[in-house]
Design a protein around this nucleic acid. Structure first.
Lengths: 336, 336
DNA sequence: GTGAAAGCGCTAACAG
DNA sequence: CTGTTAGCGCTTTCAC
């Protein structure tokens, strides 16, 4: 079918090793011969077969990326980061979407391993110890990214969630709010980062001598935020809540949607903040005040770590924390 | 490092061919021997090396996917479709993001070819004849997807844009609107599908004996929609425009943002419709009335086509049209 | 039913 | 500088 190194060698009247040398610039070749080879390559439209190359060099130049769902904007941002820096080092990305299935995640790890990927990045939203153990067995570099759950003894990159939540609570208080509701997620609360975030909220409220109010929601989608609207409205009426700090942007947006439908205005009637800074946060009206989780950077740093390890360069500590940024936008307002 | 077929053969005391046979179920193997081999595989944790396998079978089980930007939600939906059905046929996806660069698109086509991908799907937003010619040379199945430009003599899958635009115009008219503004995109207007959509709009308006109003915007982002807000507001005041049919959802949302900031209510003051049904369309408030371009299905059908061709099953016509659906939501209202 | 051997396209010693 | 050769890990004739 397609031209091989042999065809080139024959046409250029040299040995295949010489062809290999000019392709890879691996050893000196005389100008004259090089020219002949280059011509032959040109003439035949020869393109090296990376599969054959991989087999001998044992370098697939592939990084496996197992994600929950590429349709989630934050996942897409991570993928962008991973791909873009991977590309700089000549790595291609094999993408697998698990849609939250534990078994699928594990299956993909196996698939990727057979494909000889040199590293694996997992972007998960569930608790899955098995996949970690699986990947550890492969003895290839990996990074485990999970927005919700604590990264179980794995290399990871994120932000300091305790610190971030302190900052947001502090900010809300600085705006004059005294009755601030924290909306958390009830699922596996003590295994998720929510435990840190709740503690941060509590500590900061206490420090400022104001009372804590916590309400737990069951999911973390926009719908879930919408659905707690009624309850929050009740709290607004009975407890005089003036600000809501939601543990996820989606919850915040759902909540705003609810208020929109109820003809209550945000931030005029109530301030709402999120956590994450998903793409929608800055598009939505009102624009959402939130904590930025730098997804693109998370992806970029994750693959950078893997590549470093692959190159045998020393890798730093297990988990890398990126700088925190609080995005002060429209949805939270000063209260007097 | 990792166990190979040889190790298994040795441990099971058979030849490597036998091992291969049991792995692939390619030829009968006596139960007794099969058991021994299976045991050995188990014991060594042996996993076939797909790279080696690919080299001999010339099947990489890889499909290349060149996209504009995975961060765009519609792209992500296409990718989901591609990946999910690819997976059913045991194909993995290698993802490349071009970010709108012609050269990058071409470079990726080459990279993918060298990786021996069996097919290529291009999701582009620019005009790039070269990449098509490039891929055609490779003689591998491909599908070209472009939301904006006519797919230049290539297999593609989309909806009938003329028909869809007729339906939307018709719908707006049926709501009682007489002064409907169509917002198009000025760039390469006669090479893009806009020419069909404009024609559809014009034809339908004419058929209903109402005057056409067309305004062209320069980009197709949310910002662009926002930026024409002033102009549209002017048209609203001077020409009595009561509905705006935007050629893209993003434009529509930008426009709604503008009106939000101007304290004009959609749809109370003005009805606005989009085109595409991006994810945001149903999340946004007010929910956006729009034409659904079934991105997931587009991706799914695209890869299905490639796989069919790979299997030598007859492939239907060049371009496949999917059913049209108009999503009647909040942003367009009856006028009296 | 099983094994020996050739070879996929390429890289990397090893000679010369 | 260049060619010869031995694999990389696997599938696939071809004999037995």
């Amino acid at each position: 079918m397609s031209a091989t190194i042999k065809d080139v060698a024959k046409l250029a009247e040299v040995s295949i090793s010489t062809v290999s040398r000019v392709i890879n610039d691996s050893k000196p070749v005389s100008p004259e011969v090089r020219r002949r080879v280059l011509n032959a390559i040109e003439e035949l439209g020869y393109k090296p077969n990376e599969v054959a190359r991989s087999l001998v060099t044992k370098k697939s130049n592939l990084i496996g990326l197992i994600v929950n769902d590429i349709g989630d904007s934050y996942v897409a941002q991570i993928v962008r980061g991973v791909e873009e820096v991977g590309r700089m080092y000549n790595y291609d990305i094999v993408l697998c979407s698990s849609y939250g299935s534990k078994d699928t995640e594990i299956k993909f790890a196996q698939v990727l391993r057979r494909k000889q990927v040199e590293g694996i990045i997992v972007v998960s939203e569930i608790l899955n110890k098995e996949i970690i153990e699986q990947i550890k067995e492969y003895k290839i570099p990996y990074v485990y990214l999970n927005k919700y759950y604590d990264s179980i003894e794995s290399p990871t990159v994120s932000i300091d969630n305790y610190e971030a939540s302190c900052m947001m609570t502090e900010y809300l208080i600085s705006l004059g709010h005294k009755n601030i509701l924290y909306v958390t997620n009830e699922k596996d609360m003590d295994l998720t980062i929510e435990k840190d975030k709740i503690k941060a909220y509590r500590d900061t409220m206490e420090l400022n001598k104001v009372e804590s109010h916590i309400y737990a929601v069951s999911g973390h989608g926009i719908d879930d935020g919408y659905n707690i609207g009624e309850k929050v409205k009740e709290l607004y009426n009975t407890k005089g809540i003036t600000a809501v700090f939601c543990c996820q942007d989606e919850i915040a947006i759902g909540l705003i949607n609810y208020f929109y439908d109820q003809n209550m205005r945000v931030p005029n009637d109530i301030s709402i903040s999120g956590y994450g800074d998903i793409k929608l946060a800055s598009i939505y009206r009102p624009e959402l005040t939130t904590i930025k989780e730098p997804y693109y950077d998370i992806g970029a740093v994750a693959i950078r770590r893997i590549i470093k390890e692959l190159k045998g360069e020393g890798v730093e500590e297990q988990s890398i924390n990126l700088p925190i940024q609080i995005m002060k936008r429209e949805s939270c307002e000063r209260i007097y």
